[in-house]
Simulated scan of single mutants.
Amino acid sequence: MHTEYSESDKSFWLKVVGDHMTSPSGLSVPEGYFIFIETSLSPQNGDLVIAKMLQNNEIIFKKYVIDAGRVYLKPLNPLYHAIEATKDIQVIGVVREARTLLKV
């Protein structure tokens, strides 16, 4: 897919799997959407990010939240809980765009 947001040659698209980022109100990035990740950006409070859990190599998609000097990765779906971003979690990149493909 083409995007105007690419800032490096290390950016890429991923397809969202699961409902952690599906919200009943406000911002929602449901399963099946495609997200564009820019790896050259440092996350800021409120950004959506892709991160890797180093202990099991799981890739996660969450909202980057700074609260009282601590960093959390928070799902948009209120049925799931936030996790504290420790040294065992590596942020890979910041999500710059989300889109879906409509079936014809």
Rank of each mutant, 00 (worst) to 15 (best):
G93A: 10
E38I: 08
I35Q: 01
S11P: 05
W13G: 12
D47Q: 08
S28G: 01
V91T: 12
V16P: 01
K63S: 13
L73T: 01
D88A: 03
V91F: 04
Y5H: 11
K74C: 06
P24F: 08
W13T: 12
L41F: 10
F36W: 12
S42C: 03
S6I: 01
N56K: 11
V17S: 10
I35R: 01
P30F: 06
V17R: 11
S11A: 14
L48A: 13
I89T: 01
I60Y: 04
S25V: 05
K10H: 14
I50V: 15
T86S: 13
L73P: 01
F61C: 04
S6F: 02
F34M: 11
L54N: 03
Y33R: 02
S11W: 00
H20G: 09
Y64K: 02
E4D: 14
K62C: 04
V94L: 06
R99D: 08
Q55P: 01
R96D: 06
V29A: 03
S42R: 11
Y80I: 08
E4G: 09
R96N: 07
I59M: 14
Y64M: 04
I59K: 08
S8P: 04
S6P: 00
L48V: 15
I92M: 12
P43H: 03
S6Q: 14
H20W: 06
N45F: 08
K63C: 05
I50Q: 04
Q44H: 10
Y72P: 03
A68M: 10
A85D: 00
P75C: 12
V94E: 02
S25D: 12
S28P: 02
A68G: 09
V29F: 06
Y5Q: 10
G32P: 02
I59C: 07
E38K: 08
